[in-house]
Amino acid sequence: MNEPNEPNEYVGYARMDALHSLQEPRTESPFEMSFILISQVKELLFRMVHLEVDQARARLREDCPAAACRALSRAVRHQRVLIGCWESMNAMPVDEFLVFRDTLGQASGTQSFMYRLLEFTLGNRDTAMVRSADLDAFPQLRAELDRPSLYDEVLRFLARSGFPVPEHLRTREPASRYEPDEGVEKVWLAVYRDPDGHRAAYDLAEQLLEMAYRFSHWRATHLLVVERMLGGKRGSGGSDGAAWLRTVNEHRFFPELWTMRSVL
């Protein structure tokens, strides 16, 4: 135990003092402080998910699918906490939110570079969703576009395991937007028609689908919270608000794992 005049080791190790100095609300509303805090919590959780996704990608490059699955399982646990964050936001009365909403200006959660880095790493490389200024300000985003995504590494692992993954997908330009491919759907069909014979690929597929499901769950909950708080108002970042979120909700990571079910 620390002596009275000694530094607090816990506070110093995790920089808790610095952490609690980062909130600077612009109004007197206690709800604004809550909004800032939960936004920061979500940002840190995005980083936790990304850390595990990056680990899974690295393990696949080493042909260690079991270790990749363990990393994805940890990421899914973090995703569950992320989804729960919306419950805190959902508790805010709309009239209280409107008290400080104008102070956000053009700020929007869609501008989170860690959220976009996570999407890029998983495989959704839609650069139209990112401002060029952000690509310059956050070099991690531009660097991510130069390396294969998690799904790229999944397909390369499957090819090395003997599955007939189309060559153009094994050698594709990492920064390009991924388009669903019938050949990949056939690969996943083969895996699911013989799970015992393709256990490593099957377990990997199930972990990927769980991650994709949780991500879509997060987006859907986001939409519901926005509709509850803002109705049909435009988003703070200039988007169409709920209407734009409905469009985003149509996207699915690892698309062939979803479409394959229609023909299995």
Rank of each mutant, 00 (worst) to 15 (best):
R26W: 11
E32V: 10
L44V: 15
G12S: 12
T221P: 07
A137T: 10
P174A: 04
D17K: 14
A56N: 07
T110A: 12
G105K: 01
L204A: 02
M92N: 01
S108G: 10
R15T: 11
M1T: 09
G105C: 06
H198T: 05
D136S: 10
L155T: 00
V187E: 02
D152L: 12
L245W: 00
D54P: 07
L98V: 10
I38F: 13
E24N: 13
A201N: 01
L135W: 02
V130M: 03
G231S: 11
V99G: 01
E87D: 14
R228C: 11
H222A: 11
F163R: 01
G123V: 00
P139S: 08
L118Q: 03
C69Q: 05
T247H: 03
L22H: 13
A201M: 01
Q111R: 10
A14P: 03
E24K: 11
Y10M: 11
L264F: 05
D136A: 14
N249V: 05
A68D: 07
V184Y: 01
S34N: 08
P139C: 11
P139T: 01
G238N: 07
Q55S: 15
H251Q: 04
M129E: 08
G241L: 06
V11W: 11
L104H: 06
A243W: 13
R177A: 14
Y10R: 08
E52K: 01
R70Y: 05
T127S: 14
G237F: 06
L19A: 12
E144Y: 09
G241Q: 07
L141Q: 04
D102S: 14
G241H: 02
K233E: 12
F138R: 04
Q140N: 05
